[in-house]
Each structure stands twice: as C-alpha cells, then as structure tokens.
Design a protein around this nucleic acid. Structure first.
Lengths: 217, 217
DNA sequence: GTCTATAACTTGATAGAC
DNA sequence: GTCTATCAAGTTATAGAC
C-alpha cells in the first residue's frame, strides 16, 4: 500500500509532513538544549519518527541543523518583524518594537531562552563552516531589516550617522543584552542595554542637523 | 615511594601541578570546542593525565568546568585589565583599551575565538545553575571594573548618565560584537559596534553639563 | 596521588525488509 | 518513505592495585 506521498519541494517549502515535523522538533530541541547536547534519539522520540525516516531526509545531524537554520530565515518576517511592523509605521519605533519583542520572550521564559541564532553562532562557528554561514545569513537578514528602518527614518537621523553600522550596534545590543540577562537570569542587563541604546538614538534624533560640535559647550 | 606531594590549597591557589594542568587544559579545550563537545578523554590526553587522577580532583566534568570558571575570575586582572590599565590612566581610554584588547584577540585568531565566558553563558545557562552563576560572576567582575572607569571619569560624563547601565552596555557591545564577528568571520561587526559605542560616549563627553535639551535645535 | 582496565551507557549512523 | 534491529565508536565515570 504505497501511500501517494507528497514529495515535490517547491523552493524551500517542505511538502513532506514528516520532514516538516523533524525540522520543527529539531528546531525546538536545538534551541532549548543546544546542538551538541541534543541527541538524534531525543529528536526522533519527540517527533514520533523513526531513525530510518530521518536519515532518508537528512544524511547527517548537521544537515538537519542546516534545515533548521533555513527555517529560521523563513520565520524572520512572520515571527519577528511583521507583528511589530503591523502595529507601528514609525521606523524608529519599529526598531525598538523588535527589541521589545525579545524582552517579552525573556520575560515569558524567566530569562531562560533568548535568541536561537546567537546560541548557534557561539556554539557552532568553529565547528562547521556551512553552519557558520547559515548563522551569518540569519544575522544579516535581521540586520538588513533594521537598517531599512534606519534608512526610512530619513533626515530624522543626522546625515553623517552610518545607518549600516548603527544597525549592527542594534543587533549587537540585542544579542549582548540577551546573553547577560540569561546568565544573570534577570531582565535588568537587557533592559539597561536597550535603555542606553535608546538614549543614544534619542540624542541622535535631537541633534540631527549636523555634527556634535555645533553645540558643544 | 609515596611522593610528598604538595597538597594544601590556600584559597584558590592550586598547589597540585596535576590539578593545575588539568584546569588549564580544560580551559583551553572548553574554549576552543565548547563544553559538551569536549571529551574527558581529550582533556586527559592533552594534559598527559590519567582518568584516575582527574576524578581524584574533580568528581564530575561539571566540577572541572566550575574550576575553569574560577580560574577565569583570577585571570581577569592579569590578563584583561592590567595590560590596558598599565598603559593609560585615562579612564575612558581604559574602557576602549579593553575593547581594543578583544579586537586584537579576534584579529589574531582570524575571528575564530572570542570571549570564553560568552560562549559558556549561552551554552550552559540552562543546564547547570552552578555554572550559570559562575558565568554571571565573571560578567559581574568585568562590568564592575568598567563601571569603576566610568565613575573615575567623574564629571566628564553628564551627571544624569547611569554609570551602572552604561557599563552594562559596554559589556553588551563587546559580547554582541564578538558574536557577529565570529559568525561572519570578519572584524567589521565588532569594529562597527565599538565605533558606534564610541560615538555615543563622545557625544556624552561633549554634552556633559546637562540634558540633551539644552542645545536642541 | 597515580595507574590500568573497564563498566554502563549513549552516540550518530546503517542495513535491509516492507 | 517508513520500519526494526543493530553496529561501531564514543561517552562519563568507577574499581582496585600500587
């Protein structure tokens, strides 16, 4: 009784339910426990799939991780950006709305879970170049979206402020803040980091029309 | 032929050479490969020590990690701060000198190695509360030293700028910048983050004597 | 304090029937 | 595409002689 199984993968969409379930389960477990600390058996048990099926789709554990990282790229807009961008059109508020989203995540998990990409960045960058690149692409997607907000802010920001580098600092603030909040199991380091970043941006917004020098005193 | 082995541990100092070697080797390997990915066998081989000796000193692998984290606390001043503080007495330059030290480390390792504490923070915070706390203490030592610099800067910084929170942002910038530099295997994200932080601090230094409002325009 | 040998278990991955 | 059974190697940790 050969089931007529959905098989064509148009683009990144997985038509196979088993494959989908595998990626989703692996995503959760890698997130909660890290890549090394998550066993294939564990993934299999939670997904309700047998070893044979997993290895039919993914030759190695690393290939499964790469699929997970592709999935995270797909989720950037629907999960991270859209909910914020739908609520406000002000590009500066969009930026801090995204940061507020991570604060809510920390709050909801009692500072136990942060950014899955950041976790993998530090754990895997030296172990697999393919993974490192997939992580970098995830960072880049996030950063480019934030940079677009900064560009949309137009002349509200001083002309000489580098939007590209400021977008990098914003991602830096999120990742560094999340890291400390998790280590201290306390929101304060995250909130402090974002508050100081906000102070910086506020100062930039107020002094938009030139360098700092013009009103030194 | 029972060797008269040095045994008393006065404080944190390890009088046993074997123990010292074990901690040092574990420190390197945990740094390079992460905690989970490093095997006891690997540590034993590199240190030239037998399994029996390791377990004589450390009941579990986690205890070894805790000793490593204690060691990092001891190393903060001699390895991270003193080399910078000896070169300059200006507290603001001390802060950015420390950040420059991490840049040099990234440069020397082609962006392969960053901050060992940051790695452990993300890998271990959910797995062991003892490790999480030891990581938090390491962060706190670093942050307190930087905060002292900011306090030493006195009225060069505006009175209403929260030194404590600014110190947090500085650690955040280091950790977040290092993370992205490693993921992209490129110094730019780190340099961009630090440059923007410097711009922020420069603006604070110039506008020390009050709020932003006084010269809005 | 250090040695060797090994227990007890888990790991990622494979084979081959269906 | 999915199933079961299993491999070979690796894991942390222990036992007991010296």
């Amino acid at each position: 009784m050969t089931k007529v199984n959905q098989s064509r993968d148009s683009g990144t969409t997985q038509r196979s339910l088993t494959k989908q379930r595998l990626v989703e389960t692996a995503r959760e477990l890698f997130y909660q426990n890290g890549y090394e600390a998550t066993g294939i058996k564990q993934i299999l048990a939670k997904a309700g799939v047998n070893s044979g099926s997993l290895y039919y789709f993914f030759p190695t554990k690393e290939d499964l991780l790469l699929a997970v990282l592709e999935r995270y790229k797909e989720l950037l807009w629907p999960m991270v950006l859209d909910p914020v961008f739908d609520r406000t059109g002000d590009p500066i508020e969009q930026v801090f709305g995204v940061l507020e989203g991570y604060r809510k995540m920390l709050l909801a998990t009692y500072c136990r879970q942060g950014c899955p990409i950041g976790n993998l960045a530090l754990e895997m960058s030296e172990k697999s170049d393919a993974v490192r690149k997939a992580v970098a692409e995830n960072f880049e997607g996030w950063r480019v979206a934030i940079r677009q907000c900064l560009m949309d802010a137009g002349d509200r920001l001083p002309a000489d402020v580098d939007r590209d580098r400021l977008a990098t600092l914003i991602l830096t603030t999120m990742e560094g803040g999340v890291m400390q909040a998790r280590a201290h199991r306390n929101l304060e380091p995250y909130e402090a980091s974002v508050a100081m970043l906000r102070d910086y941006v506020d100062r930039l917004l107020l002094h938009k029309s030139g360098g700092v020098s013009e009103c030194a005193g």
